[in-house]
């Protein structure tokens, strides 16, 4: 009973968050000092052109009407037309969405187990050589912006020092992203190096907390073997934080792909977002902002619900 209530409350918070995000995105894109039609069509556009543009994209409606139309379209899977070519957004962004989801999925597949393993091992070997080396290197990697890590990797592995991997991804329209495996190495490596240090630090901290807890202490005092203590007493309690870590990882990826795609010319939503911002293509910017926020909010939501369901301590405390 208590759990169900908590899950419902968490779901409601997720929905409210998305609603507020949609308001923020819409209001921010109303802040244009001039008419969007003028901004897109240029100075020499005639009055008729501007009027036609405004009518086509619904800009002649009131702001409230525009917002509700847009929100309704988003919910029903029709985010509207692109300013630049008048084509429905989903028609030309569909492949981009798939490519980016693939990049994030492949990146998570590598970095989640890696950060769990590194974090847990560092916690077990606390203050030993591995922990210290990992602490320094993850500190350095976590501080640098993704594009700097990627640019230095390109210098190191693709151009100047060694030429092992291509510096850009070549995926033509209509091709699947995994058709250029060589080209995927550097983007994935960059994403992994950007995400893993931060996440593995969180894993290490929560693992240390579990290892120092009363119940692990108790299990040790009972004379159980270290292996039993680890597998039967420590790990089950570390599963909850693990969900948080996975969510954190995915959320981080959702932001990181923007820059990584631009760096390696990967045809995904990050590159599309950059171009749309340059062209003042508001519907595309709004849609992509909502899409990335949706990934962010949903992954956090699933993690919180997952944590509530698997953590024995939380369950008892709540009821």
């Amino acid at each position: 009973m208590g759990i169900l209530k908590l899950v419902i409350r968490r779901l409601a918070f997720g929905v409210v968050t998305l609603f507020v995000v949609s308001l923020a995105v819409f209001i921010l894109s109303q802040a244009l000092p001039s008419d969007p039609a003028r901004a897109v069509l240029g100075r020499e556009a005639t009055e008729e052109n501007v009027a036609a543009f405004r009518e086509k994209f619904g800009l002649d409606q009131s702001a409230v009407r525009q917002y509700t139309d847009w929100l309704g379209g988003l919910v029903s899977g029709d985010p509207g037309l692109s300013y630049s070519n008048g084509v429905p957004i989903m028609d030309f962004l569909g492949d981009r969405l798939k490519n980016s989801l693939f990049l994030m999925f492949a990146g998570s597949l590598i970095s989640i187990p890696l950060s769990l393993a590194i974090g847990a091992y560092a916690a077990l070997r606390r203050d030993k050589l591995f922990d210290n080396a990992n602490s320094v290197s993850s500190l350095i990697l976590a501080a640098m912006p993704e594009f700097v890590v990627g640019a230095l990797l390109t210098v190191l592995l693709a151009t100047n020092v060694w030429q092992i991997f291509p510096a850009t991804v070549r995926v033509r329209p209509g091709e699947q992203p995994w058709s250029d495996i060589d080209g995927l190495v550097l983007p994935l490596l960059t994403l992994t190096l950007a995400v893993t240090p931060y996440v593995s630090r969180v894993v290490r901290a929560s693992m240390i907390e579990v290892l120092e807890s009363d119940y692990v202490e108790m299990a040790r005092l009972k004379g159980l073997s270290e292996r039993t203590v680890l597998w039967r007493h420590a790990l089950p309690n570390a599963i909850g934080p693990t969900f948080q870590v996975i969510a954190l990882n995915i959320a981080y990826m959702a932001g990181g792909v923007i820059v990584v795609e631009a760096l390696f010319n990967y045809p995904g939503i990050g590159l599309a977002l950059r171009d749309a911002v340059r062209e003042v293509n508001l519907p595309v910017v709004q849609f992509l902002a909502m899409f990335i926020s949706l990934i962010y909010v949903v992954s956090n939501l699933l993690a919180d619900v997952g944590t509530i369901l698997v953590t024995p301590r939380l369950r008892t405390r709540l009821s």
Partner: peptide, 16 residues
């Protein structure tokens, strides 16, 4: 916090 920082910056830059 439900919004990557870079994303919000990009949305704001689009118009202004």
């Amino acid at each position: 916090l439900a919004f990557p920082q870079l994303l919000l910056a990009l949305v704001a830059l689009t118009t202004i």
